[in-house]
Design a protein around this nucleic acid. Sequence first.
DNA 1: AGAATAGGTAAGTGATAACTTACACGTCAA
DNA 2: TTGACGTGTAAGTTATCACTTACCTATTCT
Lengths: 124, 124
Amino acid sequence: MGWTATTQATTTAMTKTVQLATEDVFTAIAHPVRRRLLDLLVGGEQPVNRLAMPFKMSRPAISQHLRILLDVGLVSERRSGRERRYRLHPEGLRQIREWLATYDRFWQERLAALGDHLDKENRQ
Amino acid sequence: MGWTATTQATTTAMTKTVQLATEDVFTAIAHPVRRRLLDLLVGGEQPVNRLAMPFKMSRPAISQHLRILLDVGLVSERRSGRERRYRLHPEGLRQIREWLATYDRFWQERLAALGDHLDKENRQ
DNA sequence: AGAATAGGTAAGTGATAACTTACACGTCAA
DNA sequence: TTGACGTGTAAGTTATCACTTACCTATTCT
């Protein structure tokens, strides 16, 4: 997995951002902890401490997983006081759904073929 | 990603087998080469050499990827002469679809909420 | 039988994923 | 202001991925 440095301009300052070269949603959701984090966020926007609670890992580890989710755009971050609240952005999952669609079709065809086969069997 | 050693009994002897602890379909499809392999198999059962052709990697590398797909059950292998024909078994992808379903719901709710919000705005 | 074809497996290597601890920095509370 | 809270980042370690080359076995062809 490669990393690329990109720069992002804001009105007030320049902020450096690190992004996944491939916006690889597939890789992002490959890790069970990250899937679990997304699941937790279905309950709504939540601060890191709250997200980290169910896990036995250190909090920095969670931060790092959140970073990966952030990089592929599956979550966003909003600062509120000394907290950072993470929010789910499931739009990126569309990519996966689209990839899966191919296999839906394949699956349908196989079912159809099976149906035909059974029809023939019955006719004999 | 953890690995567990399991033992498998046969009538004639004991064979040691290494298996993915989690039959992790998510991990299996995380690699672009493996997704591509599955895509190629939509065209029907195919021998390894044919599957390996589009790639610049060595053939053993492809064999190793196929092994991972085999382990999680996304493909099956059938011997035919000196060839081994691989066949797609997309059933395992259901697991992913099911996980995604949660977010479909979330997404719907967000759209609904947005609709409500816009309604209120309009009423003002 | 001997050579060529098809493909799996072993062993080794380099890159990187996934943790950990230590630390820095902004925010709130006393 | 001082300290506690909430969190990100740096650096280091270990395990594992993803490849390569070398080799082995089974099948087919001559």
